[in-house]
Amino acid sequence: MLHPANVTRRFIELYEEIGLLPVRLHDLRHGATTLAHAAGADLKGIEEMLGHSSITITADTYTSLLPEADLAIAEAVARLVPRARVTSETTAPEGSESVVACTK
């Protein structure tokens, strides 16, 4: 059987050997959770995988928003903003976009 202290000691040896910055072994659990969520796994599935008693623990403590996910959310929201074509009464400057955001 593996003793937790031996696993931790070996982990430290490995990251020092390859020149990585220090990281706790437990931080890999958080990182894996964030990656699983970014890959599309739902929080309920992640909660069960980690053995948490509550989805709140999983969401609040174990996941982070990756910059790529943040950008994807912003772009998805922008696609929902209604757009209207420029009419002949409203002329757009030459070379500008032919759509403008509605102002309702």
Rank of each mutant, 00 (worst) to 15 (best):
E48P: 01
A76L: 12
D27Y: 03
T90C: 09
C102V: 13
L35E: 09
A84P: 04
L28S: 01
L28W: 01
R9Q: 08
E89A: 15
P93A: 12
R9N: 06
L66F: 11
N6P: 02
L80N: 13
V77D: 06
G19N: 04
E47A: 13
T58E: 02
S53N: 04
L65E: 06
E13Y: 05
R85P: 04
E89Y: 13
E13C: 07
L25G: 03
G40V: 15
C102D: 09
L80I: 11
E47N: 14
L25D: 02
P67D: 07
A69M: 15
S53H: 01
Y62Q: 00
I18P: 00
L28Q: 00
S88P: 11
V23P: 01
T8P: 01
L14A: 05
E68T: 15
G31Y: 07
E94G: 12
G31R: 07
C102L: 14
I18C: 14
S64D: 13
R10N: 14
T91E: 05
M49Y: 14
N6M: 14
T90K: 06
E97T: 13
T103I: 13
E16G: 10
V23Y: 03
P93Y: 01
L66A: 11
S88L: 15
A69K: 10
I57Q: 01
A41N: 05
R9A: 11
S54K: 02
T34E: 04
D27R: 04
F11P: 00
A38Q: 00
A36K: 05
S64Q: 13
A69N: 15
A41K: 03
A32Q: 05
H26M: 05
L66N: 09
T87R: 08
D27K: 06
G40N: 12
E17I: 04
T63C: 03
H52N: 03
L80V: 11
H37L: 13
P4G: 00
A69R: 11
E68D: 15
L21E: 10
T87P: 04
A38F: 03
E94C: 01
S88I: 15
T56A: 11
E13G: 08
